[in-house]
Nucleic acid binder design. Structure first.
Lengths: 130, 130
DNA sequence: ATTTACTTACGAAGATATTCGTAGATCAAT
DNA sequence: ATTGATCTACGAATATCTTCGTAAGTAAAT
């Protein structure tokens, strides 16, 4: 996985990355089928996109068999963090907690999830005390 | 403020919106000066951008005097929420709490902020009980 | 009234992202 | 070995975003 490079994936690229993060490894056909559920694009469009992503270093490709197999070359965590940082910066006036509350406010979360977050807050605070 | 329409602002548009959300109302000159602190673009570039945003319905414009005065036509909250939702959907596997924890984990937050979030969690839970 | 210092409007170039048709390779089944 | 299904590579059209030069208007100061 490693380095998230310097670039940021486009909207379409993120959709593909999302699928690959979930599936782990997949062919163009796999990705395209999954994509088709929510979108409406030709097969070669998906193919081209994934080729470009490979050139950019976003995807690894195993070309040993006729049908190539792709995996994400940039980690989900890194990408998430980069997008979050930019978003906090440009849209949330630099305040992470503002983002957090906005995210919580409009999403029904289970008690378990809320507890998990509370636990997380405690951990952070403990860590800061030391 | 009202409806956040169907569209999502581009990166550049968000920068301008951010400034207008903060300032409330501003001329192209105002926005451009502010923008220049972090960016390096010509005056007419900012102008054009704001004209387009006005056409798209992102900005209101008072053209009664020679120098037009702009305000944001879409609310910060709505825009934040739309961007958050898309992000949670495509990058965080639909889990808001995953986003929340990722956001908290890599940002140093003050005790006050953390408390505020905790309070917020309690409010949400109370609300759900009823 | 001319100059100077702004402004907006407009068009168009440049950059980037998205889409897809077509051609050629591969392989399994007839 | 021909057909049919599926794949990759490639090029190019289209769409969208970003940038800026130029022209024309306005208003204050000389």
């Amino acid at each position: 996985m490693s380095t998230a490079k310097n670039n940021k994936p486009t909207e379409s690229e993120l959709e593909i990355l999302g699928i690959l993060w979930e599936k782990g490894a997949a062919t163009v056909r796999d990705v395209h089928d999954e994509l088709s559920k929510s979108k409406d694009a030709g097969y070669t469009t998906t193919l081209k996109l994934m080729q470009i992503m490979h050139e950019k270093g976003y995807l690894n490709r195993d070309a040993s068999s006729k049908t190539h197999v792709y995996t994400a070359a940039i980690s989900q965590e890194n990408t998430q963090q980069q997008l979050l940082n930019k978003m906090i910066d440009t849209v949330f006036n630099g305040s992470a907690s503002q983002l957090v509350m906005q995210a919580l406010g409009h999403h029904t979360s289970s008690k378990e999830e809320l507890d998990k977050i509370r636990q997380y807050l405690n951990d952070i605070e403990d860590q800061q005390k030391r």
